[in-house]
Simulated assay, not measured.
Amino acid sequence: MDIALLLIGFTCMIVGIFGSFLPVIPGPGLSWLGILLLYLTHAVPMNYWILGLTLAVTVVVSVLDYLIPAKGTKKFGGSKYGIWGTNIGLIVGIFAPIPFGFIVGPFVGAFVGELIYDSKDHGRALKAATGSFIGFLASSFMKFVICMIFLGLFIGVAWQHRAFF
């Protein structure tokens, strides 16, 4: 059973890394699940401190993942329309049958939202959409770093307790 938990946990870690770039997959959440599965094995003693701290980091990063693109839009001069456009564009982009819709969606959503707010100022709309895109990249990078740290923790703990042998 331990081998199955280790393999499923490691798979969660790898899928979590991919999920840091794909909004459909909750990257940090899956990576945390991988850590939890590691601690559920008999080879590794339960450590509630690590599980609690990594869960807290996962929750904070998950909340920030939704706030950062909207804040990027606002920072670059976007209005509430641009922020709403960013969020709607992200959701539409996830389900759109186009390549990289999850990247294009927030950009187009912020741009359209700003054009609805002020149809004459294309430059402002483009600037707000750029802020949305930069916010999305920052959010993805943050999730990627957290998932990589969780992977390092997973491997380090498994190696320390010889969970693979």
Rank of each mutant, 00 (worst) to 15 (best):
I8S: 11
G89P: 00
I68A: 06
E114C: 03
M148Q: 06
L137I: 13
S132M: 07
N87F: 15
T86A: 13
I3D: 14
W32V: 03
D118F: 09
Q160P: 00
A163T: 05
Y81C: 07
T54P: 08
G156K: 12
G101I: 06
A43L: 09
I25S: 02
S79Q: 13
L53M: 14
G131S: 07
I94Y: 01
A4S: 11
G156L: 12
M148H: 00
F100K: 04
G78Y: 12
F76Q: 11
V108Y: 00
A125G: 02
I155K: 06
A4G: 04
S79D: 12
T86Q: 08
V60Q: 04
F164T: 09
L53T: 15
I134Q: 03
V112I: 15
D121N: 15
P45Y: 07
I25M: 07
S139E: 00
L115A: 05
S62H: 12
A96S: 15
F107W: 10
E114D: 04
G105A: 11
P69D: 05
S119E: 10
A70V: 14
K143E: 01
L55P: 10
F21L: 14
L55E: 03
E114V: 02
H161K: 07
A43R: 13
T11A: 14
G27E: 04
K120D: 14
L33N: 04
G135M: 06
D118N: 15
Y117M: 06
I146W: 10
F136A: 05
